[in-house]
Design a protein around this nucleic acid. Sequence first.
DNA 1: AGCAATAATTGTTGACGTCAATAGTTGTTG
DNA 2: CAACAACTATTGACGTCAACAATTATTGCT
Lengths: 166, 166
Amino acid sequence: MPVPRPREPAITRQHATPKPIDADEPWMRGLHADTGYLLYRLGLRSGQLFNTFLQESGLRLRHYAVLRYLAGSAGALQRELSTRLGYDPSAIVGLVDDLEKLDLTERRPSPDDRRSKIVVLTEKGRIFLRDTDEAGRRVTNDLLEPLDAGERDALHALLLRIADQP
Amino acid sequence: MPVPRPREPAITRQHATPKPIDADEPWMRGLHADTGYLLYRLGLRSGQLFNTFLQESGLRLRHYAVLRYLAGSAGALQRELSTRLGYDPSAIVGLVDDLEKLDLTERRPSPDDRRSKIVVLTEKGRIFLRDTDEAGRRVTNDLLEPLDAGERDALHALLLRIADQP
DNA sequence: AGCAATAATTGTTGACGTCAATAGTTGTTG
DNA sequence: CAACAACTATTGACGTCAACAATTATTGCT
């Protein structure tokens, strides 16, 4: 017996005035009319590319996110990783476990708070990041192939502005 | 007994020359140093935003993608949806099932091939797209808040160039 | 007629997000 | 200072969902 897949989909708003549909309205112009949705779609593609190049090392994008963050901060509480990367605290546990098993990171006790643990990159972790960085850049180059150098910089700058709001 | 979580992560490449690590190398500059990864991250955020506004109608982003695509093509084989949207054929089945249950789309038999089915937007589907379009634009406006109108256009143009490669 | 290729579909498996519960630790406050 | 609330990391359970393999019906090739 087929269980209903999402929890009972239903259209809430009903329209009193069923205006005629105009095929030239902006919302009718195909998949990529909206910047936000376009961004989502490209993000998917980028993520998939990164995943394929990462999988040869046995890690996934989530692990990479942790490593990447640690590269910029030289030590972070797990709590910090959770909030900054947007993963559940319980997810961080497993990720750091995996990284630790590979000697890419290390858990150190916090001096001022015995509850917290500080996750730091090991030397091996830094080497790993350096080595995979080239592969990552190749993926990005592939993705941004239609743009020239100046356009890529412009894009990066614009994206950074969007990313840097809390 | 704790089962190993991913299938045994392992670093393949080993380095013979352990060069010293320079903290100013580009790959050490934190999370958003790479455009591709930054794109992935923003895509995630954008997707989450879209999902929250969609969830009031019981649909998710994938459903929206199908509707959006159909809006631009006036009828598509499921196979076509699969390849163009990048979802597995088996995923399309469920998505179209859901949309059909809401009378937003309709499966019609293909005249020349009895294996294929043509998915088309119903009138209700078009109305749904029109109604949700405004909400979608609000989401995008929110996301692109730090950019002015000209910059948004520039960003959209750049992203389109990237998206329009096969 | 026989056989490979294709479209939609089903089933299965593993990852993932969410939520609740716990142990150890800290800070607060009555 | 003792009781209690808040917080950190962790574990466990549950439902959802996406990727992959296998199946069925149909088509095209030869």
